[in-house]
Computed example of a mutant assay.
Amino acid sequence: MSLVLTVNGRQHTVDASPETPLLYVLRNDLQLNGAKFGCGLGQCGACTVQVDGKAAYSCLLPVAAAQGRAIRTVEGLGAPEAPSPLQKAFMDEQAAQCGYCIGGMIMRAQALLDANPRPSEAHIRAHMQPNLCRCGTHMRILRAIRRAAGLPVEAASA
């Protein structure tokens, strides 16, 4: 079945079964590999993208439910030669160790900063809680988000 998706501001027509997870269409049909398959259950966040400005697990979202909605992937934020402020902050803080979770972390963090450019420490932590980093770089990830938000890089209280 032909479906029309708007991804990173561009329309794409894809042939996919309506119940196919958005993640598979992004990776296999559109060659956007920033979102990763982690658990397939919406429990790790490696597949996080933005749908209508909100963080969403692309492994759980049927592609048919994504039609007519604005989908944004980490590739839509910036490029290696011109990273977004959040991507630059992740680089400055060396927030990626293995890098597997980082696309999802950045997309969840970007959704937060788009909704609230200067969130509190508690708000950052609560918003980022669903995404997991198996390498344990959570503290560097939190510093990167604070840096991008123009907040003191070191948290006032942990």
Score class of each variant (00 low, 15 high):
89 A>Y: 01
144 A>E: 06
78 G>Q: 12
153 V>G: 04
16 A>G: 03
72 R>L: 15
29 D>R: 15
23 L>S: 02
4 V>A: 13
85 P>S: 06
102 I>K: 03
73 T>R: 15
77 L>V: 04
61 L>I: 12
158 A>S: 04
60 L>I: 11
130 P>Y: 10
19 E>M: 12
14 V>M: 09
18 P>M: 08
35 A>P: 06
18 P>A: 11
50 Q>R: 15
137 T>Y: 13
16 A>S: 10
55 A>T: 01
74 V>I: 15
83 P>Q: 13
119 P>T: 09
150 G>T: 08
102 I>C: 01
81 E>P: 00
140 R>I: 01
60 L>H: 13
129 Q>K: 14
51 V>E: 07
153 V>M: 14
142 L>C: 01
149 A>L: 07
64 A>C: 00
86 L>D: 08
65 A>N: 11
92 D>W: 07
45 G>N: 09
114 D>L: 02
89 A>P: 00
31 Q>W: 05
50 Q>K: 15
141 I>Q: 12
47 C>R: 05
111 A>E: 04
66 A>K: 05
61 L>N: 03
47 C>N: 03
116 N>C: 12
71 I>K: 12
52 D>W: 06
33 N>I: 11
114 D>H: 02
76 G>R: 11
156 A>Q: 12
70 A>R: 14
80 P>H: 08
18 P>Q: 14
70 A>K: 15
83 P>C: 10
80 P>G: 06
20 T>A: 12
35 A>H: 08
14 V>P: 02
83 P>Y: 09
46 A>C: 07
157 S>W: 13
117 P>M: 13
123 H>R: 15
141 I>A: 10
80 P>W: 10
105 M>E: 06
83 P>S: 08
60 L>T: 09
91 M>R: 15
56 A>P: 00
140 R>C: 02
16 A>Q: 11
124 I>K: 07
97 Q>P: 01
84 S>Q: 09
33 N>W: 09
87 Q>Y: 06
11 Q>H: 09
117 P>V: 10
8 N>V: 05
137 T>I: 08
154 E>N: 13
104 G>H: 11
100 Y>K: 08
115 A>N: 05
80 P>D: 05
125 R>I: 12
54 K>C: 02
138 H>Q: 15
6 T>E: 13
109 A>T: 01
30 L>E: 05
35 A>S: 15
102 I>P: 00
18 P>F: 09
158 A>N: 06
33 N>A: 12
109 A>S: 10
136 G>L: 12
137 T>V: 02
8 N>D: 14
25 V>T: 07
144 A>H: 03
55 A>Q: 02
110 Q>H: 14
90 F>S: 01
28 N>Q: 14
86 L>E: 11
134 R>E: 03
23 L>Y: 03
108 R>Y: 00
99 G>F: 04
133 C>L: 01
